[in-house]
Design a protein around this nucleic acid. Sequence first.
DNA 1: CATTGTGTGC
Length: 623
Amino acid sequence: MPPLTHYCLQYLHTHNTTTQSHTLSTLRNLATPITYPTHSFPSPRQLLEHRIASLIQQCPNMRALRQIHAHFLKFPSPSSSFALSKLIAFAALSDRGDIGYARRLFDEMPRPNVFSWNCMIRGCSLVPNPSKEPILLYKKMVARGFANPNSFTVAFVLKACSVVSALSEGRQIHCRAFRHGLDSSPFVQTGLVNFYAKCEEIALARSVFDETPERNLVAWSAMISGYSRIGLVIEALGLFREMQEVGIDPDEVTMVSVISACARAGALDLGRWVHAFIDRKRITVDLELSTALIDMYAKCGAIEKARKVFDEMEVRDAQAWSSMIVGLAIHGLVEDALELFSKMLESKVKPNHVTFIGVLLACAHSGLVDDGRRFWSTMQEFGVEPSMEVYGCMVDLLCRSGLLDEAYSFVTTMPILPNSIIWRTLLVGCRNNNNLDKAELVANKLLEIEPLNAENYVLLSNLYASSSQWEKVSFMRKKMKGHGVKIVPGSSSIEINGFLHKFVVGDDSHPEIREIRKVLRDIAELARKAGHKPWTSAVLHDVGEEEKEEALVEHSERLAIAFGLLKIKAPNVIRVVKNLRFCADCHEVTKIISKAYEREIIVRDRIRFHHFVKGTCSCKDFW
DNA sequence: CATTGTGTGC
């Protein structure tokens, strides 16, 4: 007798006599014959199976499920295999279930049907640490011809592929589904769109999307989220507009991606418009959407508005708290960030690693090394496993406090292998602390693990240039050429009066390029005078009262005023997005500018800008 | 027998 069966029979025996649970009495009922009128429909067997299904569905816990399992082992019936597959479904899929139990049930099933295979595949991708297990299950199912996959199987296994970004496996599944005619199901098609989007194969996602005859809300949302995720903001927002043109009403899930696209674009006006749209359409602002809104307002510089959304939330999870804390931290509102962190702990929400990114970011921005170290131990007390990003924050914190040696030994003794970003953080730290020896050491390591990133060569080359070591500068250039590395021009964007402007280094076709460059020079000067080290991100503009905003009509004028505000309200000023993605605190005003300078020193003589399809993204007449 | 799309990050 297999161990599980044995265990269950024992379980039934002991509990049958000691408990009077609802489950057991219903089970006894199941054993009694059902009387039914002869002309009735459904059949008695169907009726019985319906009762079994609803009984299993109502299981309050695994104990009850075991009792049912035991019952069917002890009293085999023609419906046993039906019951078994329902037991597997419960154990694998219910939140009261137990995937391990499902596995054992499944392994003991002589010939599981498609339904059971599907449940196992889906159940395995629902576990907290998803692996390729569901994909292996699918392979096993196909290879040994255990059961014929149906469209459900394909949809579930595609989902499994998208959570682990298993591109090649998913492509094979796509091919097989095509050969077997399983790709006509709308669920499979949407699954494919989502799968390719999650694997960042956006062109493939789009081609499946375009060939989908009936594009439902989910397909549109998956596609929009795909664009938004990889930063193709204009495409995401364009698709959102197209979706409305064909008459599909977005819901709160769609809006999360749309808001997130606004956040990445730094498009405050557009974000505000979308927020108003959400209210107008009475779309529920749930936990996820609120979090996205907080992030959007924070990244676009409207920190008070972010705080308002946060304060109005009824329930907040770790992600909501984290996005608010990170928002405050990038605004340089260090005290608020740390105060909010204490409040988070008071309200018994367990912080996650992103929370600590925010906390350490706040410390780094204000030079609170000791506090940062304290929070590092707090993190360990909470059992939060530091991610690579958290290590990065810690390195940044140490570097900014001038503790280069400590930062270096921190990196070399990390329990996980430091990635290129960690090394680059350290390299920037060496540069800012004028430690050329250490910089060389770090740079060699960096070039070793990431020889194809132009940024690394540029960084080191500029370091040499700043100390007039021209032979080494040209050596770096040669080395870069030797690796076939080309410099990809950096870019940034800003939204002004509802227009999204994108600037690419090496192009100066913007009609107001002269004025803009003057403003950028002024801001750099301001920052220098104010004692800010020009080493992180750029900040442009205060988000003042509505009226003030309305008054600022001209782009260049508005830009200039915005920059001018910097000296008045320094700690609260924010704006502009680095590489379409991120903005930073006022502490560090000129990254885009200095970044442009960095490249410009070896690439070109002047900073140049490119005006990117003006008007493609106006929220005023765009909709 | 049943499915698919969402948020925080150096």
